[in-house]
Design a protein around this nucleic acid. Structure first.
Lengths: 238, 238
DNA sequence: GTTTATTTGTTCGTATGTATT
DNA sequence: AAATACATACGAACAAATAAA
């Protein structure tokens, strides 16, 4: 990560947007004007604006101009991409904590897990059960499955921290595929999350992959619906 | 929409990926090699690969190469972006239907709606209540609020079709901000969706905007959780 | 362990295309 | 009809990081 010109320009533009130099209902200056202003090439301006588009700060309207996004920017999941629970919580200025409920080595696991992690018979895997707290309130219950060979020495102390960071000392995680369900909490989980029985929750099935397509981690997480929402920006066409 | 070179290359590459010419665990040819193969410039190849990245077909690994995405590509919401219910259903080869439960002109509406649509006192707006069916099963209950001036002549017949298409005859929709909750269905809604009372569901709050940031439409939709899931691909860093 | 080659990333310049106002 | 503004496309060069010799 460095001092690339287009990122510098993108950051400056984003700051000007934050400071309301450019408002919502009015166009940004044209690419040529911005190129003159910042004394750089038009291509660099385009790359900067592309970056802001990815960050969901602006939208482009072909042949017309670039506008600031109107949507209210709450910090919640989705927009943050594949970020650990800890990272998201810190961005929100909250105090995240983790309790490891169990850490066991198993050979019996649900068929879905075997499929998604492409396990062979008798593959030994870690099964990790954790509770995640924010400001001392339980927020998420995680059930994680992980090939043992990826973290042979895992202990409970380590399992309290960021598993992603631990794993990435050996192999880097490129992306994850996530499927979201709405469910009612069962007796056990609602007790753990300190909610009424059968209160509504999200169930997120997540499988994380390395860049060359090998599955690394399987995660079933329950999120308390009263504490957590998923936010998304959807685009028309293009 | 035309015959742009980079899109042509992107389509060809995507087809080769579909035909397993390039597998998951192996890199695509380098940008220079592809430029030679397709007799074009390297920048055009880069634009093509960028397009495939947006379509969530490949991932890039800096200074190493480009890989095919491993995640199982189900057709469900999220990846499809801001597409109407009808469009998504058709992609899945399903038979979508719509029943308009009510279409009324109101001046009393929830405060959230007034806020999000930036309504002035006494603004008249349409309140539209619809049920969406797939293969004769109820799937979604929609509660839509819409400034009357945007569609002064709206009648029940029209309200059965795609509201987005209707609206876009006057003003084009650029994006929408969506917030997802997990809830239990109340008595009335569960009866309409033909589920047991208090069964789990998604509640999606959506506000659609024009490019220049004017709110156009407010939508509260309930999705049966047993018929619908949300799918997403999350990326690490960058 | 060091050097070299490979591969993606950035940045300039320039020209033309296309849709809108 | 002309000016504006975003989009495509080529060429060229260097930077940065990784992988291979």
């Amino acid at each position: 990560m460095q001092n690339y010109l287009y990122l510098e320009v993108a950051d400056k533009l984003q700051d000007e947007i934050r400071r309301k130099v450019y408002g919502i209902h009015q166009k940004l200056p044209s690419e040529n004007d911005l190129a003159d202003q910042y004394r750089t090439s038009r291509l660099t301006i385009r790359k900067a604006i592309d970056a802001l588009e990815k960050r969901q700060v602006v939208v482009k309207d072909r042949n017309r101009g670039t506008y600031v996004l109107a949507a209210n920017k709450k910090i919640s999941s989705g927009a943050n991409g594949l970020a650990g629970f800890t990272e998201v919580a810190k961005k929100m200025n909250l105090n995240p904590q983790t309790k490891v409920l169990s850490l066991t080595e198993v050979t019996d696991y649900p068929q879905v897990v075997a499929n998604d992690l492409r396990l062979n018979k008798d593959d030994e895997i870690w099964k990790i059960e954790r509770l995640r707290y924010v400001n001392d309130e339980p927020m998420t219950h995680e059930q994680i499955y992980l090939k043992e060979q990826l973290l042979p020495m895992l202990d409970e102390k380590q399992a309290e921290g960021s598993l992603y960071e631990l794993i990435e000392q050996n192999i880097s995680i490129a992306y994850a595929s996530q499927e979201l369900e709405a469910v009612q909490l069962d007796k056990k989980t609602s007790r753990l999350l300190e909610t009424k029985e059968s209160s509504p929750a999200f169930l997120a099935h997540t499988v994380a992959y390395s860049v060359d397509g090998y599955p690394i981690l399987y995660d079933d997480s329950y999120y308390r619906s009263d504490k957590y929402t998923f936010h998304n920006i959807l685009y028309r066409n293009h």
